[in-house]
Amino acid sequence: MIAALAFYAFAFVLVASAVMVVTARNPVHSVLFLILAFFNASALFLLIGAEFLAMILVIVYVGAVAVLFLFVVMMLDIDFARLREGFQRYAPVGAVIGGILFLELVLVLAGWRFTDMAADLRLAPNPVGAVSNTAALGRVLYTDYVFLFQAAGLILLVAMIGAIVLTHRERVGTRRQVIADQVGRTGSVVLQNVAIGAGVSPGSILRPPPKDAPKAVEHHDTHGGHH
């Protein structure tokens, strides 16, 4: 009973905040609603006994992705009002199409029925009771689904390579520490015989010869980093 109540509460907030993500005028608000939606979704996961997924959702989506979105939205100067112009123009047609699709899906989902074991499964998702949710996931991931798991790993690798390819640039004029050069440099420290008692006058400290390389300061490049 309580579980059902909680489900409907979370589900309602989830759907409502999802609607707000799309309709909110201020993009910052949109992202904040998105975070709310994630939280509610994770609560739903908890309700069906998938605590690992619930945590992952919070940590990955809320902690990393959504916050990153927020930064991007706040830092980039995007005129969202202008982007919405098209939305206004196509809204009627879009509404018709969306409405039809919605009706059709309702029609389809009307034919939905749960299997007999559904209720039991919801209470005890793991076939073998002794294993925790996380361990059970790990087991299937590394046995039955190792192929897909590894392939998914490849996808992430590709995403990383892609990000680097598209955004990483070798900038001219940046200076990096090259330890080998530092160690191998000669002629900068010189042992000199100074007349005893003469002392060293201020301003006569020996320095390495000045390099004539210009110390160009490159402006921060914002190309290609907006997604």
Partner: peptide, 29 residues
């Protein structure tokens, strides 16, 4: 069907990147 999806993504993601490979060209991006 899961393998279908994973395979499709593994195909698509590199394609998105190489489509924009000439990143200095606006058209490519």
């Amino acid at each position: 069907l899961m393998a279908v999806y994973i395979g499709l993504e593994l195909l698509s993601l590199p394609l998105y990147v190489i489509a924009a490979f000439n990143r200095d060209s606006g058209r490519s991006a």
